[in-house]
Computed example of a mutant assay.
Amino acid sequence: DQALKAMLEERGVNKACGAKVTQVTDDAVVYEKDGQTVSVPADTVIVAAGYRSNNELEDQLDGLVDDLSVVGDAVAPRKILTAVHEGYHAIRVME
C-alpha cells in the first residue's frame, strides 16, 4: 500500500474521503462534503467506497466512460491484499 500511496502522490491524484459523488461529467467530478459542493476537473475517476460489494455505480457508468476498472470487493469479497494489487495495477496502466 505504500507504493500505491506514493504513485498517487507522484501523479497528483486528488482524494476526497467521506464525500458523496453527485455527478461525473466528461471533464469533472462533482461531490458534496461537509455541506459544500465541490467540482474537480478530471479525466480519470477512482472510487474506493465501502466494505461490501455494491456495483450500482459501475452499472450507472457502464457505457458512459471509455475505460472503467473495477477492483477489490466490488468484483467479489476477497482479501485486502488482492484489492491493493488490483488498485496498484489500475493506476500503473493509466494513461
Rank of each mutant, 00 (worst) to 15 (best):
A48C: 13
M7R: 14
L57I: 04
D27E: 13
K33D: 09
H85L: 14
G50C: 07
L4H: 13
N55Q: 13
R52I: 11
K5Q: 12
A3D: 12
V30H: 00
G35H: 05
A90C: 11
V38Q: 07
N55T: 12
D43L: 07
I80E: 08
M94D: 12
D1C: 15
V21I: 15
A28I: 02
T22I: 05
V38E: 08
S53T: 09
N14I: 04
S69G: 00
K15T: 10
G72R: 04
G87V: 09
T37E: 07
D62Y: 03
E32Q: 05
N55M: 06
Q23G: 03
P77C: 04
V29E: 01
K15W: 06
A49R: 12
L4Y: 13
A28M: 04
K20W: 12
D73Q: 00
D43H: 13
P41H: 07
T82W: 01
V71G: 01
Q23Y: 04
S53K: 10
Q60D: 14
K79D: 11
Q23S: 13
V70R: 02
D73S: 02
G35R: 07
Q60G: 08
V38K: 11
D73I: 00
L68A: 02
N55P: 01
R11W: 05
A48P: 03
A16W: 03
A6S: 14
L61S: 08
D67T: 12
E95W: 09
G87D: 01
A42R: 06
V30N: 00
N54S: 09
L57N: 02
G50R: 08
A76V: 09
D43R: 11
Q60K: 12
Y51G: 14
N14W: 01
T22L: 03
G50F: 07
A90S: 13
G12E: 00
L57P: 02
D59H: 04
C17V: 14
S53L: 06
K33H: 10
G87C: 06
A3M: 15
T22W: 03
K79N: 15
L4P: 04
E58S: 06
D27Q: 07
P41Y: 02
V71P: 01
E56Q: 10
V21D: 02
V45Y: 06
H85T: 11
H85S: 12
V30C: 01
P41D: 13
P41A: 10
A49T: 13
V65D: 00
L57Q: 08
G63D: 05
P41E: 08
R52N: 09
V84L: 15
Q23R: 14
N55D: 11
G18M: 06
V70M: 05
Y88V: 01
G35T: 09
H85P: 00
G63W: 01
P41T: 07
V71E: 00
D62N: 08
V84A: 10
A76D: 09
V30R: 01
Q2N: 14
G63L: 02
G63C: 01
A76H: 03
M94W: 12
D26E: 01
V24E: 01
D43Q: 11
C17L: 13
L4F: 15
S39I: 06
E9H: 03
T25Q: 10
E86V: 02
V75E: 12
L8R: 14
T44Q: 14
A19I: 06
N14R: 09
V29A: 00
Y51V: 13
S39D: 14
L57H: 05
C17K: 12
T37A: 02
G50S: 11
R52A: 14
K15V: 13
Y88I: 04
D62V: 04
